[in-house]
């Protein structure tokens, strides 16, 4: 068994530098690598390109890196809910590349799967298609989208083992599995780490081969963005 566990967050993010490209899992605030984001915020590095479906909220998630102007460019599909983000984007301080959510997911998957590019119908006829090759398949136009890779991918899982195998909970899975595949170094933080052999091999979502470092996370806030409830009659 190849041992992947690291014991400190400093060890987990060792090697991160300014001007690198990072992938960060999560959808909204669900399934984001809270511990790694906090460590990156404290690290002082900047000029980062961050690939993440969303950009957090003003004081949580990637909003923490935005507040400190550590991010140079965001690659995302949806960036509402963050006033500081909007301010930096409209003032030109922050470069933003908005891409369709399914294309973002597939571009990450492709990056990890050795597929340099693929055709998709999403975005044809819109500004997303500008400058991209168009080709017809079965009479329908498609655009060529390229794979995405990152120097580091930071992902969050519910449970993991010391071999780096990961299991996600509920909808906190989202972008984490594809980003784990596409990082040159993938750092997984988990709520529960167990010795290799304890997880059912058939129930693992991300095989440990995609994960270089795994760390037992702590102090999870798991903030809810839109608390919607019904009342018992």
């Amino acid at each position: 068994m190849i041992k992947k566990e690291v014991k400190s967050i400093d060890e987990a993010i060792k090697g991160v530098q300014s001007n690198m490209t990072f992938m960060l899992g999560g959808f909204g605030l669900c399934g984001i690598p809270e511990n790694c984001i906090e460590a990156l915020s404290n690290s002082g590095i900047n000029g980062l390109t961050c690939i993440s479906n969303n950009a957090g909220v003003d004081n949580f998630g990637l909003g923490l890196l935005l507040q400190k102007r550590q991010i140079k460019k965001m690659i995302s599909s949806y960036v509402g809910e963050n006033a500081e983000f909007e301010r930096q984007m409209l003032s030109g301080e922050l470069e933003v590349d908005l891409i369709p959510q399914g294309s973002l997911a597939e571009r990450c998957r492709a990056g990890g799967a050795g597929i340099p590019a693929f055709y998709t119908p999403a975005g044809y006829g819109t500004e997303v298609a500008e400058g991209k090759e168009v080709r017809e398949f079965n009479g329908q136009p498609h655009i060529l989208e390229s794979a995405l890779e990152a120097d580091f991918a930071f992902v969050k899982a519910w449970k993991g083992d010391t071999a780096g195998n990961l299991i996600y909970k509920g909808t906190a899975r989202n972008f984490n599995p594809m980003m784990a595949m596409a990082g040159k170094i993938t750092v997984a933080e988990v709520e529960h780490i167990v010795p290799a052999g304890e997880l059912d091999p058939a129930s693992i979502h991300t095989p440990g081969i995609f994960v270089q470092r795994i760390i037992q996370g702590s102090n999870y806030e798991k903030r809810i963005e839109q608390r919607t409830v019904r009342t018992k009659d």
């Binding site: 995302s76 599909s77 949806y78 960036v79 509402g80 909007e86 984007m89 409209l90 933003v96 908005l98 369709p100 959510q101 399914g102 294309s103 998709t120 119908p121 999403a122 975005g123 044809y124 819109t126 997303v128």
Partner: peptide
């Protein structure tokens, strides 16, 4: 400018 989310994939 909030982004398209999944809308472009859905409508395409």
């Amino acid at each position: 400018v909030k982004g398209m989310g999944g809308a472009m994939d859905l409508v395409a």
